[in-house]
């Protein structure tokens, strides 16, 4: 069964004068362990779609099923619990918690979201921090490390809870292209090692090439004939 099933998902934003149709009847499936990218011009609805998949927002119409759950049925608390259990997030601006060290940032979801006992916690954080190559910086605070390093910590934080799906909205937009490439490579390697599904959005053509499944969004629609994804061609 597909990890994500979207059928005729629409999202409208009501503003004072007009209704913005950010997504128009989008239908697609994403299989487990795939490495998926949504691309499209600014304003095409990428963030809107990722927010819906990430259970941070609700579709205006249509059905969106993530990991077997219809996300429209979740309330605030249920949504938080669902995200904590099944999803990982990587943000464009890294969004590490400034008062916590690298180690503590990675540990955070295990304590505050999942209540993992200390011994297992230590093992998981240690292996994850190692996997992203940040062991030497474990005791540093976010303001003491570079952007690429921050995003690697964010990748580790997203993966430490062993989610089925990691969502990343423009994860490389604030990184230079070389660093962007290494972060995407890291994500892909983690997919290979852990079988986690990655869904990210991007502008960056170089990065687009790394996606195994590519969806193009245009003005809130999936580009014609590519509704079920395509092999990347750059």
């Amino acid at each position: 069964m597909a990890l994500i099933q979207a059928s005729n998902v629409s999202k409208d934003y009501e503003t004072e004068e007009v209704t913005v149709h950010a997504l128009r009847r989008v239908t697609f499936d994403i299989e487990p362990a795939s490495f998926v990218s949504f691309v499209g011009p600014s304003g095409s609805g990428k963030t809107t779609l990722l927010n819906l998949i990430g259970c941070l927002d609700k579709p205006s119409s249509g059905q969106l099923i993530v990991a077997g759950t219809d996300i429209a049925t979740l309330d605030r608390k249920g949504g938080a619990a669902f995200r904590g259990k099944h999803l990982g997030f990587i943000f464009q601006d890294f969004n590490l918690i400034p008062v916590l060290t690298v180690y503590e940032n990675i540990e955070y979801p295990l304590i505050m979201v999942q209540n993992i006992p200390p011994t297992e916690r230590r093992e998981r954080v240690a292996s994850m921090i190692d996997a992203v190559g940040m062991s030497a910086q474990a005791a540093k605070f976010p303001h003491q490390i570079s952007g690429g390093q921050k995003q690697r910590v964010a990748v580790a934080r997203a993966l430490v809870t062993h989610p089925a799906l990691v969502l990343a909205d423009e994860p490389t937009a604030n990184l230079d292209s070389q660093t962007a490439y290494t972060v995407i490579a890291l994500m892909k390697r983690m997919r290979d090692d852990l079988g986690t599904t990655f869904v990210f959005s991007t502008h960056d053509t170089k990065i687009v090439g790394e996606a195994e499944v590519l969806f193009r969004l245009e003005d809130g629609r999936l580009a014609t004939g590519q509704g079920s994804g395509e092999a990347p061609h750059v």
Binding site: A81, K85, I97, Y108, M112, A158
Partner: peptide, 16 residues
């Protein structure tokens, strides 16, 4: 606010 958004997004229960 952004920090709160982050920890809420990654699933921190509202009570916490």
């Amino acid at each position: 606010i952004r920090e709160i958004g982050t920890i809420a997004a990654i699933g921190t229960p509202p009570g916490r």
